[in-house]
Design a protein around this nucleic acid. Structure first.
Length: 639
DNA sequence: ATGTAGGATCAA
DNA sequence: TGATCCTACATC
């Protein structure tokens, strides 16, 4: 018997410390030689504790000169991290100055042993769809053709109003699968996953795809993961938790409505699904669709740098599909007056609603805030009404009800203004519930229903009906709404965030997209504003171009890359000052009593260097027991 | 983080 | 001098 050479595994240990963001060598004992493979989960001894880890490489030498411990055990069911996802995870860890261990936790779901015992299914064949309705878009057919030919076309796709986007994505996935490649489709929320699920079943037939979302629970999620890993299915549709799914032979990645905040992972280092998927497209040579009714500045940058091609609706198709969009500027008509129940709706909006209802069509009202009257002020001196106990904002919960604190729930009765002592109050913001009440009294006999984040309506039946919804949870109507009314737009437009207008256009377009062709959409905003113009002309590409130019001018993302450093007073600033890199430091601004935040700004092409420097600096600080500073690349407050 | 090695500290 | 506390340090 000849001595076979010792084998070693490079393991990423499940440990969150930044200074341990490196691979550790372990010896593979002879009895585990045939089971330890790259991508396996293993159990190891680390710093005198038993931890789990992921094997990234198996080699016949170790880089480490000290004592090398053996791998204790291999965790079934074999390799769960594919080579592609391993490389992707490293790229994302680098991009976001995060730990590989953290990113691997995003990529590998919690194990459920009973799922592993289920018999594997067989892979069902996928045939190309007979029809794929992409011909209404510039570059649409060219995209499908290239996809069918196994190439890597990349488009930023702006859907026409009323578009069945889920069906279009399902068709694209089917084309990729019929060409022998896999597809990964990521959407903002569970409702969109369900819609995509139905569209995929309709196009492909049953059992050709799986869904992957947190809401389905750990067991079905692990089942979907394994089906994708084993190649039982080639198509995965999910929320952002699916972005690292092990789709074999990836041929298409797609993200829908990439401006939606839900596409950012909830876990460190908080990568954005769009960034992960476009990295994946680059790594694998997959085609890429960044789609939505609206367009983000980030997507526009991909177009302007030539990374992707713009695919917007063709002129004739837009003319056929577009509803009439009527802007109603800020005039006397629109003043909020609690004594009048209808003053908030301009007559054009009333007319549009009345006409739609008379034609037995539903009407959608988009209202930014839920509740009855979520903010009140003093009738006499206009001071904002706050809770005398905790200074939280007071709100009204219904007609003739006393003010209630939004934070602590205290009923403030009898209410007196803290400034002038008056007991009269006025509404500052009118919520969806009050709007529904106003509408109900204006249209007696018409059913009024509400949809909001906690009580979401999925779809409504055909017929005359009024839906009052907060943004993002508007139910679809069969055949489309006869009228869509966008109310209180000032709330969104006056937000301080960098993305306020972009976000306004996104939520408006998502609502107006539900309008029937030839229907009317009324937006209560000044028609001279570029964002309103973009809605009227259904030209998200034009607006994104403007937006990107503005941001370039001002030095904002995505043209410049930002990092936020948060830590105990002075610490973040100190870390920033010590960086061996030319960065612009903005701030610090206080977060609370003890903590403050600085923003770092670099040119986009220096983003990788910034992330690398920050990862190194935080690791060194942690090693030196300095106070921890949290790093976030592309922080929410600016990007 | 967390266990450990080696130094500093202190009572006898 | 030994026992104990403390801090620096590596973790394969």
């Amino acid at each position: 018997m000849d001595e076979s050479p010792a084998r070693y595994a490079a393991v990423c240990v499940d440990h969150p410390l930044p200074q341990l963001n490196q691979l550790f060598d372990y010896r593979i004992p002879p009895e585990l030689l045939d089971r330890v493979e790259p991508g396996c989960r293993v159990s190891v001894r680390f710093s005198n504790r038993k931890l789990k880890g992921t094997v990234l490489a198996v080699r016949d030498h170790a880089d480490f000169a000290g004592t090398i411990l053996p791998i204790l055990d291999v965790i079934p069911p074999g390799p769960v991290l594919t080579a592609e996802v391993a490389e992707l995870a490293q790229r994302i860890a680098d991009r976001y100055a995060g730990n590989l261990a953290d990113v691997l936790r995003l990529a590998l779901p919690e194990r459920k042993i009973r799922v592993e015992k289920e018999p594997p299914g067989e892979r069902l064949p996928v045939t190309a769809p007979k029809l794929a309705h992409w011909n209404r878009y510039n570059a649409g057919e060219a995209f499908l053709r290239a996809l069918r030919d196994g190439k890597a076309p990349r488009i930023v796709w702006n859907a026409l109003p009323g578009e069945d986007w889920a069906a279009r994505l399902a068709e694209a996935a089917a084309v990729a699968a019929a060409a022998g490649r896999g597809a990964l489709l990521v959407v903002p929320d569970q409702y969109d996953v369900e819609r995509l699920d139905r569209a995929l079943t309709a196009v492909l037939g049953p059992d050709r795809h799986v869904t992957l979302a947190n809401a389905m629970g750990p067991t079905p999620r692990y089942r979907s993961f394994l089906k994708a890993l084993r190649g039982e299915v080639r198509i995965v549709a999910g929320t952002q938790v699916a972005m690292f799914a092990p789709v074999a032979d990836l041929g298409l990645v797609a993200v829908w409505d990439d401006g939606d905040k839900n596409l950012v992972s909830l876990h460190a280092p908080h990568p954005h699904a769009r960034e992960v998927l476009l990295t994946r497209a680059e790594l694998t040579g997959a085609a890429c669709v960044i789609g939505g009714f609206a367009r983000t500045a980030q997507a526009q940058l991909l177009v302007e740098t030539g990374w992707a091609v713009s695919a917007a609706g063709r002129r004739d198709a837009l003319r056929a599909a577009a509803p009439r969009v009527v802007p109603i500027g800020d005039d006397a008509d629109l003043k909020i007056d609690p004594s009048s129940s209808t003053a908030r709706l301009p007559s054009v909006a009333w007319d549009a609603a009345r006409k739609a209802l008379a034609a037995d069509r539903p009407v959608l009202l988009q209202v930014p805030r839920r509740g009855y009257v979520p903010a009140v002020s003093c009738q006499r001196c206009r001071t904002r009404a706050l809770c005398p106990e905790c200074t939280g904002p007071l709100r009204l919960t219904g007609p003739r009800r006393p003010p209630v604190c939004t934070w602590c729930g205290r009923v403030d009765e009898p209410h007196r203004c803290a400034e002038c002592g008056s007991d009269r109050i006025r509404a500052v913001v009118i919520g969806a519930a009050r709007t529904a009440e106003e509408i109900a009294s204006a249209f007696p006999g018409v059913e009024v229903v509400e949809s909001n984040a906690s009580e979401r309506l999925d779809a409504i039946p055909a017929g005359a009906r009024v839906v009052v919804s907060t943004p993002g949870v508007e139910p679809a109507a069969p055949g489309g709404y006869g009228a869509v009314l966008l109310l209180d737009t000032w709330a969104q437009l006056t937000r301080a965030e960098l993305t306020a207008s972009e976000e306004a256009l996104r939520i408006w377009m998502n609502a107006v997209a539900l309008c029937a062709p030839g229907g009317t959409a009324v937006v209560t905003a000044d028609g001279g504003l570029p964002v309103v113009q973009a809605l009227i002309r259904w030209d998200a590409a034009w607006f994104a171009g403007q937006e990107l130019a503005d941001r370039a001018e001002l030095g904002f993302p995505p043209v410049m890359r930002f990092a936020a450093l948060t830590g105990l007073n002075g610490e973040a600033e100190k870390l920033a000052a010590d960086l061996p890199l030319d960065v612009e430091v903005i701030g610090p601004i206080p977060v609370d009593e003890q903590h403050e935040r600085v923003l770092l700004r670099v040119r986009r092409r220096d983003g990788a260097a910034l992330a690398a420097t920050l990862a190194k600096a935080t690791a060194e600080r942690a090693g030196a027991k300095a106070e921890q500073v949290r790093v976030q690349i592309d922080p929410r407050e600016i990007a």
